[in-house]
Design a binder for these strands. Structure first.
Lengths: 255, 255
DNA sequence: ACAAAAGTGTTTTTTATACACCCATGC
DNA sequence: GCATGGGTGTATAAAAAACACTTTTGT
């Protein structure tokens, strides 16, 4: 936030490019990068959405879908915009992740060195895999990558993804994000598989997971049964947001 | 992060100030604002450091200590710099909080409207009250304000403080930040008082708090006793960082 | 009939909560 | 000696973890 005299700001503008020893204020381009996660429960894979860079620097390398922020556009609006450009979804969860803004994180800073800095406000998103439709514009590459098979990434995007992965794991444990990714109705095994896919096999036993969740009373049994191949058909449940509301601020554990 | 063609960037620069319907990239001033907390255990008060604004806008109003980011300066370095300008401390805890970047959060955006946006990357800090020495430069006001008696604040700084307060409460519960604020050696009541001051009276019973903490085995009893007025003298403990290290990633609860 | 998946229950261990009580010091 | 704050222990309740077992389907 600004606390400098506006006269100093003016001096800064005049002197731009000069090499005085007095430190100058940096000029920023602010970008937004989305770490968009999805879970393929069938293949038990945690996926991240990547796009292929169409220009320099890092032309031809994979990176996170991002954009520069426009005039009059809120940060989250920019995150929404780039997301909507790449993917069609009905439901999504989106929140700010972290701001990466060290100098030299973008090679353009060095090259044309107008003193322009590139700052990235990263966002974390979770979308429903089954209903997520990728928008391929014919030219640019776009694909889901499994978290354990990420390619080389442009900029510091590998770091951003790691950060997002941490957040996802934590979110799962103490907040109901899972229900943003699951279909309207789902079986408890669906839910369990989602958790194991993200947190790993050994986070909890199925039957304990099950009883813990049901004791919280915000999963409503629709009574409808879903038969998937062999085995006993499972009850379809739905998340009851109203029943969850009073628990919102409590430190509850889903694991 | 930048994904636009550099040619578009050039067009943007030429057209700056024109009113075409095509959306233009925003030019950003990036500031850093610190929410610096401290705990006065004697008076049982949670404090925030505020400074008086010396210029327009909001001249004469209290706000968070902040600064604009300089050329070649990392965000956290800017946060460190402004902190060091206002306060002398040996120990501190500093981490990024959130980035506030909606349009019109700074009145200067509207007034001189070069399309310049003011973005604030906020940082969260915790300092030891007893050893924190405020730097008064004679002109500018600077003061600790109790969280429950905050004055009117410039910009959206009240919101930023609320956000920081949430973070502080959460941090206390699952991470050892408390030991950053306490002196090298401290009594368990000191620690307990710190927790009650931040979290409120009814978070836990003293004796349970005590045994829970001691069971974690990272508080070392120095054997030295501290007598403070009446009552039995208390043992002085010190935080053992090595003993804590293996617990670092575990989801442990301090409350 | 039997394998596969869903769902229930039981036992053991650990942790949380609410207290009651003893200890060491200053006045 | 007694108020004051420090420190220990115990009894009860609740939660986590491990695992055995029953139920309902497809083949």
């Amino acid at each position: 936030m600004p606390h400098r005299l506006s006269s100093e700001l003016d001096r800064h503008r005049q002197r731009k490019g000069s090499d005085l020893d007095e430190p100058l204020l940096a000029d920023f381009r602010v970008g937004v990068d989305n770490v968009i996660f999805s879970v393929d429960t069938d293949l038990q894979r945690l996926l991240v959405l990547l796009v292929m860079r169409q220009e320099e620097p890092f032309l031809g390398q994979w990176c996170l879908p991002g954009t520069l922020v426009r005039n009059g556009e809120a940060l989250e609006a920019a995150a929404d915009r780039i997301l909507a450009e790449k993917i069609r979804v009905q439901n999504l969860y989106l929140e700010q992740l972290y701001t990466f803004g060290g100098p030299m994180r973008d090679p353009r800073e060095a090259k044309d060195s107008y003193g322009v800095r590139y700052l990235s406000v990263s966002y974390f998103a979770l979308v429903r895999y089954s209903e997520a439709e990728l928008i391929a514009d014919g030219v640019s590459g776009i694909a889901w990558y499994p978290m354990n098979q990420l390619p080389d990434l442009a900029f510091d995007h590998a770091k951003i993804i790691q950060y997002g992965h941490c957040r996802l794991r934590n979110k799962l444990e103490y907040s109901p994000v899972a229900f943003e990714v699951l279909p309207e109705v789902f079986t408890l095994s669906d839910l369990y598989q989602l958790y194991t896919t993200v947190l790993g096999e050994n986070f909890s036993d199925y039957s304990n997971f099950r009883s813990r969740l049901l004791k919280l009373k915000f999963l409503e049994d629709t009574g409808i049964k879903a038969s998937r191949g062999a085995g006993r058909p499972a009850s379809l449940y739905k998340f009851d947001a109203e029943a969850f509301a009073p628990l919102k601020d409590k430190a509850l554990v889903f694991i």
